[in-house]
C-alpha cells in the first residue's frame, strides 16, 4: 500500500470547500454564526472538533501551526491536535507565537500581539451567546436578525444583583462591528480587549453546534456592560513566579495541601521567551539577590 492514507489535512477537498465557503460568509458578516455541515472528526466533541475543521480547511503546506490549550502548548489537547496535523498535513509546527501562521486555541488569546497574516482559530463549545436565557434556536435566530439584544443585559443584571458586580469572567459577551452579539468562546474576559482591532484574522469553529463565525482584522469588538458598571479586565493581582510578568494572565497552581500556591503565566510560550531573554530578572532571581 503506497497510496496516502489521508488527503492533505485529513478532510477531503469538497468538505474543505464547503467549510471555506462558510468561513468566507462569516468574514463578510462579522460576528454572524454561519451554519455548516460539521463532520465527524477522530476526536470527541469538546476536544475542538470545530476548530480542527476550520484549521484543516485553511491550512496550506507552507503554513506553520501552533496549538494552545488554556494558553499552554504542552497539554494533551494541544499536543494531540498538533501531532494530528503534523501527521495528516505534514506541516511545520511550532510553539512560538511569532513564528506561527495559524494558531488554533482553546480558551486563550496569546499574550504576544498578533500580526497581519496570522490566523487565530478558536474552539467553541456553545456559540450562541443568548442560549442560557433563551433555549429556543428559532427564537435566538430571530433575535439576532432583529438585533434584539436586551436579554444579554438581563444576564449581566443578574450578575450584579447577585454578586454586586459583573461576575461573568469568561465567555463574556461582545458586540462585533456594532451589529451582532457574539460569544467569544470561553476565553477569560482579560482577553476580550485583544479581540478588538486585531491585525490578525480570528475564526471561530463549533463542531457539535455546527457553526462558524469570524472577526475580520481591524474590526471593533465591544464588551457589553452597564453605564454604572463598566466592563473591567480581570487578572490575579500577582506576578508570574517564573518570569515575573505582572501584566500577563496568570494561572493559580496549588503546590501542596497546606495552602501553598504559586501564580504562573497561562501563556507558556510568553513565559518561556521572557525567561530565555537574558535581560529580564525573575522574581526568584530578585529574591535570591535580596536574600
Amino acid at each position: 500500500m503506497n497510496a496516502p492514507a489521508y488527503n492533505f489535512a485529513y478532510l477531503d477537498e469538497q468538505t474543505k470547500r464547503m467549510i471555506r465557503r462558510a468561513i468566507l460568509k462569516a468574514i463578510a458578516i462579522p460576528g454572524y454564526q454561519v451554519p455548516f455541515a460539521s463532520r465527524e472528526m477522530p476526536m470527541p466533541y469538546g476536544w475542538g472538533t470545530g476548530g480542527v475543521q476550520v484549521t484543516a480547511a485553511i491550512l496550506g503546506p507552507a503554513d506553520v501551526l501552533k496549538v494552545i490549550d488554556q494558553g499552554s502548548d504542552d497539554t494533551t489537547n494541544a499536543v494531540s491536535i498538533r501531532k494530528f496535523f503534523g501527521r495528516t498535513a505534514g506541516v511545520r509546527t511550532t510553539t512560538h507565537t511569532t513564528e506561527a501562521t495559524v494558531i488554533q486555541t482553546r480558551h486563550r488569546v496569546p499574550e504576544t500581539p498578533l500580526k497581519a497574516g496570522q490566523i487565530l482559530v478558536y474552539q467553541v463549545p456553545i456559540p450562541e451567546p443568548l442560549r442560557f436565557l433563551e433555549p429556543r434556536e428559532t427564537e435566538t435566530r430571530r433575535m439576532h436578525a432583529l438585533e434584539e439584544y436586551g436579554l444579554v443585559h438581563v444576564k449581566l443584571y443578574e450578575d450584579i444583583a447577585r454578586h454586586g458586580h459583573i461576575a461573568t469572567t469568561y465567555a463574556y459577551p461582545v458586540k462585533v462591528a456594532g451589529r451582532y452579539v457574539m460569544d467569544p468562546s470561553p476565553i477569560p474576559k482579560f482577553d476580550n480587549p485583544k479581540l478588538s482591532n486585531s491585525d490578525a484574522l480570528q475564526l471561530f469553529g463549533a463542531g457539535r453546534e455546527k457553526r462558524i463565525y469570524a472577526i475580520p482584522p481591524h474590526t471593533a469588538v465591544v464588551s457589553l456592560d452597564f453605564e454604572d458598571h463598566p466592563f473591567e479586565q480581570w487578572r490575579h493581582p500577582a506576578s508570574c513566579a517564573l518570569c515575573g510578568d505582572d501584566a500577563s494572565f496568570l494561572d493559580e497552581v496549588i503546590t501542596d495541601d497546606r495552602g501553598g500556591r504559586m501564580f504562573v503565566c497561562s501563556d507558556t510560550d510568553h513565559c518561556e521567551s521572557r525567561r530565555a531573554a537574558p535581560s529580564q530578572p525573575t522574581v526568584q532571581d530578585a529574591e535570591v539577590a535580596r536574600g
Binding site: 436565557l133 450584579i160 456592560d225
Partner: peptide, 27 residues
C-alpha cells in the same frame, strides 16, 4: 415570566430591551 432569573430582572427586561443601560435606574 422568565422563571430562571430574578424578579428584578423580569421587570427590567423590557427596559433593557428598549436600550436602558444604567443598572441603578433599572433597579
Amino acid at each position: 415570566l422568565r422563571m430562571a432569573v430574578s424578579a428584578g430582572a423580569n421587570v427590567g427586561e423590557r427596559l433593557m430591551a428598549i436600550g436602558e443601560r444604567h443598572y441603578g435606574r433599572i433597579r
